[in-house]
Amino acid sequence: MRVALSVACFDDALFPGTGKAVTVLLERLGHEVAYPPGQTCCGQIHWTTGYHREAADLARAYTAAFEGCEVVVAPSASCAATVRDGYPRIARTARDPGLARAAEGLAVYELTEFLVDVLGVTDVGAYFPHRVTYHPSCQSARTLGVADRPLRLLRAVRGLDLVELPAAGECCGFGGAFAMKNSDVSVAMVADKVRHVRDTGADVVCAVDNSCLAHIGGALSRLRGGVRTMHLAEILAETGPA
């Protein structure tokens, strides 16, 4: 299958390893990966912060960049959620039925949905001999409803010791602009998340959203927490020594 890769602007700059990992992983599974060069940003930041006119412009550009692609895979649940759940709302606000139709025409999947539902695989042949815990980001769990797909993928990774995160469903406190506008509450939330992560004794905390991971990881790094953050894709891409 020819897969169009959608890389979040945030990931493009700060976490390029995620897009690389998805490329490696999908090619290993025998698929062709394309990266439509017209893509920039899905418009999520503008939409959730209230800049709805700008979000509509970016949404139009995004749908144009991916027009005609058979499937689009986004290793960012919040971007996938913006396109699938947000674009109809952006179109409603902008009173732009053309945008609504264009958004409906896109088959956008978050990575774990694509692997489990479209490709029908849970064992992707990965090897990662570490203790790992999983943070279900709000956009992945609530907006997209990826449910246990990430956990099923993780359980099939050889050598991986998966430990459950206490109070996993509670938001890490990122929330886009919230982390800046309400930084005190945001920090109080991530403090509890970090405590739960550290309680698991894991080496790595993973998720399907680098934005939440930047938040949790940023707090862990400041506190010298001794736990690494990794996008799930980067774990799935690992095969260890040949």
Partner: peptide
């Protein structure tokens, strides 16, 4: 406000 209590990885 971000770096009040959180680091950011260098790109």
């Amino acid at each position: 406000k971000w770096t009040e209590a959180r680091d950011l990885p260098a790109p």
